[in-house]
């Protein structure tokens, strides 16, 4: 439990701009300095969070079922899904790279789905996890979500570079499109979350004591 007592802008009867931190009286509609719409609490933000979350999750399913890479060598054509490609790397003793791929393409996206869902649910109920921890979780989600794009860039580089006519050629598979969309949608989902709501529960609980 946080022992720091702070006064929030809402308690002061003011609203702070989330972009440029300029402070205005409650009821001001747009920030006169940077033009951002001012809201003390964005009540519709959870709806947007869930909407992007669902679309993102829907894209993540085909992203794992379709092949990410199609490798054609002299006599064989090989199609790899995300997990399949990582397992392939493991069998070739490239453990470090396989772990990076698995981490960026499986652990981070799945963790992000869980984390956003958890945060969105937690602001609605009295929760055991501390506010500092949830704020930290939110910041980690915002920061680390972009790194899932690694696999897309790997596919881009491989498909551009490995074009050796008949010898070997790499082509991107349909999963790359779905995976990129999934990353973009979950980034939008996280951006729409109003993190000030995490701390409102704190104020409510302290008030109850």
């Amino acid at each position: 439990m946080s022992d720091v007592q702070v006064i929030t802008a809402r308690e002061m009867g003011v609203v702070g701009c989330r972009r440029c931190t300029q402070v205005w009286p409650v009821g001001t509609e747009t920030c006169g300095r940077c033009g951002k719409t001012l809201v003390s609490r964005d009540l519709k933000s959870l709806q947007r969070v869930w909407a992007w979350w669902i679309v993102g999750f829907m894209c993540y399913i085909p992203a794992n079922m379709y092949p990410m890479l199609q490798t054609r060598t002299l006599f064989t054509v090989q199609q790899d899904t995300i997990v399949g490609g990582a397992v392939e790397l493991l069998t070739h003793d490239a453990v470090g790279v396989a772990l990076i791929i698995l981490f960026a393409s499986v652990v981070i996206p799945l963790g992000k789905f869980f984390a956003i869902a958890y945060l969105a649910i937690s602001v609605k109920r009295k929760n055991a996890a501390s506010f500092e921890q949830r704020q930290l979780l939110y910041e980690v989600v915002e920061y680390i979500g972009r790194w899932s794009m690694i696999d897309i860039f790997v596919v881009a580089i491989l498909s551009a570079l490995v074009q050796l006519n008949t010898l070997a050629a790499v082509h991107p598979g349909p999963a790359s499109l779905f995976f990129a969309l999934s990353v973009i949608f979950t980034m939008l989902s996280a951006q729409n979350f109003d993190s000030r709501m995490i701390w409102d529960v704190q104020a409510r609980e302290l008030g109850d004591e």
Partner: peptide
């Protein structure tokens, strides 16, 4: 005002 937690 802190843009993340609304502290003034």
């Amino acid at each position: 005002v802190c843009p993340h937690c609304d502290a003034a």
